[in-house]
Design a binder for these strands. Structure first.
Length: 570
RNA sequence: GGCGCGGUAGCUCAGUUGGUUAGAGCGAUCGACUCAUAAUCGAUAGGUCGGGAGUUCAAGUCUCCCCCACGCCA
């Protein structure tokens, strides 16, 4: 039995994510976790909310709530939606946890001891009215280059010129509107990533079978321009992990917090401690400490391409640089972007389907199937309502759902709601078993390799085999001359439904459970031996005709949704 | 402007280290079946593999140039 540690990129606390975010990390990670569990392996699948930083503070202020309250509420919201999509986290943690605070401070101390932290003094815009330093993009003023009045402190949106906040004419805070700003000196800590460049590069170079997307992004950051840059890991904010050196004060860093991108990945580890503290597990170190049993763990991370630099470079610097025996990631599965109907999903314009809205219009399985079978693995992919409608209707309703329906209804009408006895298996049945075995082995291969689209395609092909078989042996015809033979054929077909329920569960857990319950079977063992798996339901075993497993999406619905989620165009 | 990922049938995509008539699903057309969610099964049509040049006995697959889309950075 292998042990799989699986994490999906932790979503930012600010707001509800769209389907592109979902398919880029949590959903494929869930698929993989469910599959590995189904194969009998030990799995720890973790995810959490990423809660620190300015955007969270501003969102909380906008909602008129203390930031801690705001985060607690949004965590509830995200946790509920994740549940709605059947994301099977072993624990859904929070980067603002006590565990993460301590661990982040611990890593900072270790890195400092290893000489990987340097202190830098710099000047930054301070707003008296807001009582805080302002990140460049929260300062606006008139562009000195083109005269555009709403230029941001980092770049002018009109002429594209890169700016420094001090260059702006009449600068003001976008938070309060105040013009009472001044440049102040402030100190920050930098993580000396540059010192680890060679070590990182060697590590990346020796990874085998990683997605091209993952390695190419990592290599680009390693060698672009002047090479890997040091990264500031502190901020002048209130909301975050206070800068401490372990449990000791860090002179000169009073009132500062660690930058969100330093503490967020550490939450992967802290989350396992939360998991233990929540009473769900009893030993987190055997997953994370190679000196305490984590040597045989295979650790896989899932993320969208925008997160790749942090997972291939920054976090490994933290892990390797600590010089402690922490488990390093074994495989990084990255995804491209999912576009929406000819453009990008847009949170600000309300363009595209968001996770909560998706669940309001259709059950999770419909979305899971489409998203996973169209996962943006090799390049950006696109969601269109036409494609969604045809995939769902054809794959789920016609090929799988209707199969269960035609078999169970035929049996009920010609025999009874129990597995019929009589007849025997011949060449057609042997061929089906051979074909199905080959197809399931192919499916397993794709799942092991985390080739999501190919796995979906193999699974669908397995469903098709059932329809082909029925068409060939035609029990409705056989029944007229040889009812016993028809019984044998239907007995096999009923078993197929149960088998499909088991192998489809990673993709469509609810429908799989429904089908399996209709077959009145609680056997979920993976079909290592397909012939044996097709004999689980015995002669005389009762079953029920399932409710419509997947309904079809009508043209009217499609048009309605298309209109509804188009957003406000500019 | 630099870099990155792509550009393969109407649509969504596969195509291993270059090697016989370039594949799948959907859609289309025709046929079979009639148990079933007007479902299923089979067959057929459809591509000068973005464009051009080159290397090679042989290139979707390697090299160079160009065009297009997306993204990142400056």
């Amino acid at each position: 039995m292998a042990r799989h540690l699986i994490t999906s990129a932790i979503p930012y606390i600010n707001g509800i994510k769209h389907l592109g975010n979902l398919v880029g990390s949590q959903l494929p990670a869930d698929l993989y976790a469910r599959y590995q569990r189904a194969r009998g392996h030990e799995v720890l699948y973790l995810c959490a909310t990423d809660e620190h930083g300015t955007p969270a503070e501003l969102a909380a202020a906008k909602a008129g709530k203390p930031v801690a309250d705001y985060c607690a509420e949004m965590w509830e919201v995200q946790a509920r939606i994740a549940e709605g999509f059947r994301l099977s986290f072993d624990h859904f943690g929070r980067s603002s946890s006590e565990q993460n605070r301590k661990l982040t401070q611990h890593f900072a101390a270790r890195l400092d001891d290893e000489g990987l932290i340097r202190e830098t003094s710099e000047t930054q815009m301070y707003s008296h009215a807001d009582g805080r330093f302002l990140p460049d993009r929260y300062i606006e003023g008139t562009c000195p280059n083109c005269g555009f009045e709403d230029a941001r402190g980092d770049q002018c949106d009109n002429c594209g010129k890169l700016l420094d906040p001090v260059d702006l004419i009449n600068p003001h805070s976008t938070i309060s509107g105040s013009t009472d700003l001044e440049m102040r000196e402030t100190k920050h800590l930098y993580l000396r990533q540059s010192a680890m460049k060679d070590r990182l590069e060697e590590w990346i170079d020796t990874r085998e079978g990683w997605p091209v997307l993952t390695t190419s992004i990592a290599k680009k950051w390693l060698n672009d321009g002047d090479g890997l840059q040091d990264r500031g890991i502190t901020r002048d904010l209130d909301w975050g992990v206070p800068v401490m050196k372990g449990d000791q004060p860090w002179p000169g860093m009073e009132g500062k917090v660690f930058y969100v991108w330093f503490d967020a990945p550490i939450e992967y580890i802290a989350c396992s401690q939360e998991w233990v503290d929540a009473g769900k597990g009893d030993d987190w170190e055997r997953w994370w400490r190679t000196d305490k049993g984590a040597d045989d763990v295979r650790y896989t991370q899932f993320m969208g391409k925008d997160n790749v630099p942090f997972h291939t470079l920054s976090f490994p610097v933290t892990i390797l640089g600590s010089n402690e025996p922490w488990k390093l990631v074994d495989y990084i599965k990255s995804f491209n972007y999912l576009n929406y109907d000819g453009g990008q999903f847009s949170t600000s314009r309300g363009r595209g389907v968001f996770m909560d809205q998706a669940l309001e219009i259709l059950p999770a399985d419909y979305w899971r199937w489409w998203l996973l079978s169209h996962a943006p693995e090799s390049s950006d992919s696109e969601f269109t309502w036409e494609n969604f409608q045809s995939s769902v209707n054809k794959d789920l309703a016609d090929v799988l759902g209707n199969f269960a329906s035609r078999v169970t209804k035929f049996c009920r009408s010609k025999f009874s709601e129990a597995v019929p006895a009589g007849g025997s298996y011949g060449a057609a049945e042997e061929k089906l078993i051979a074909d199905l075995t080959a197809k399931i082995r192919e499916y397993e291969g794709h799942m092991e390799a985390i080739e999501v689209r190919k796995a979906a395609s193999a699974l669908r092909a397995a469903w098709v085999l059932g329809n082909e078989y029925l068409q060939e042996v035609a029990p409705w015809t056989t029944f007229k001359t040889d009812p016993d033979q028809a019984a044998a054929q239907i007995r096999l077909a009923l078993n197929l439904i149960r088998l499909y329920a088991v192998i489809s569960a990673p993709f469509i857990p609810d429908a799989s459970a429904q089908l399996r319950e209709a077959m009145m079977s609680d056997v979920t063992d993976w079909p290592e031996d397909v012939a044996a798996a097709l004999g689980v339901m015995k002669e005389g075993d009762a079953f029920a005709v399932p409710e419509v497993t997947f309904r079809k999406i009508t043209d009217a619905e499609r048009e309605d949704w298309q209109e509804r989620f188009a957003g406000t165009r500019t």
